[in-house]
Design a protein around this nucleic acid. Sequence first.
DNA 1: ACCTGAACACCGTTCAAGT
DNA 2: ACCTGAACACCGTTCAAGT
Lengths: 211, 211
Amino acid sequence: MTARGRPARLSRAAIVAAARRLVERDGVEALTMRRVADELGASPMALYRHVRGKDELLVLLLDELAAAVPRPRLPADPRERVLTASRHIRDGLAEHPWIVDVLAGGDLIAPSILWLMEEIVAGFLAGGLSPARAADGYRVIWQFTVGDLVVRRGLSQVAALGRPPFVLGVLQSADPERFPALASVAGEWAGARGRDTYEPGLRALVDGLLS
Amino acid sequence: MTARGRPARLSRAAIVAAARRLVERDGVEALTMRRVADELGASPMALYRHVRGKDELLVLLLDELAAAVPRPRLPADPRERVLTASRHIRDGLAEHPWIVDVLAGGDLIAPSILWLMEEIVAGFLAGGLSPARAADGYRVIWQFTVGDLVVRRGLSQVAALGRPPFVLGVLQSADPERFPALASVAGEWAGARGRDTYEPGLRALVDGLLS
DNA sequence: ACCTGAACACCGTTCAAGT
DNA sequence: ACCTGAACACCGTTCAAGT
């Protein structure tokens, strides 16, 4: 029990830290204003003095994690530089699957990840692309990365359920008469599920963009 | 079989239709069991007699829309076949931005879209890929497509807010000292936002996969 | 200035009862 | 068999009041 006369002082940082603890312990769906307040031994409304609302809290959380992405040594070769920087963004974000829900909101940017964007755009420019094509190139890589994160998150959610994946069953039993190609690769889906397709996909993408 | 008891006023089909109306009129966030019930003039709990819960309702909705994707005439050339089939999946799903929330769940497949998957895999096989690489190829395309849908949805949500995009501001005012490449393409982001980058990205991806 | 309590307008879903 | 009503265990957030 806490001293009644002296309520704990809250701060933005303390709130974000509590949110992070919660999300890492129990997943995004556990991140509610009420539970964050509980975690801090405060009333739900106390949070609103320091944070505009749940949306802002999520953005603050995102930026904190982005700031923790390690700064890699990047190769000099433009193509390899783009690949390495992209993989770093993916790896950094993939550690926190709930990030997908924040990303899906759309208009977010973590200032602390700008330098990785810089590397990707610089790589494209050094590779000979025009500014317009370099900007498009970044967008395309970002799209591919978001897709990877969403799909990856989906797979791990299904794995957590413990039941055999519904999709796999449908694909593996595709009717060979109607779907000959699907039938002939039926044995491959289980393996493809386990493989990390970010790397080869990214490579194909960057090759295509820089050629 | 003799009908016993009360005649059914509701049905699965009626519930899915009401859900669809709701989602198309007011967006996904408006899709609640209670509102679907309202739409049908029934009590919330009446739905549970016909549908397991909200999750099942979303899957039923997804499959209904997938069934409506038009069957295109596909080019014979393997590469063009993959491109056309992929674009059809994207276009079909992009009409219903809320689909992203369903997709993110992970273990879903719309049986009525299997034939488009068939075309993509067949294209890769005809292009000389091994079964394993063809399966990976499909996954990569799917990832890119999901990313496109998520990003596209995010952009339209931001546009709906009416306020100037926060991300754009940050990118356009990137410090030229620290981020020279970003600064040199600063003028391009607004344009890149408006452009559809699915087409060029997909082309780069497929070129890379088939080369 | 900072925090609390009660309240509002919602959710999905369970359970028991009505027709 | 099919549907309703009340209730449970939650949400995010507003508002007025307490210290």
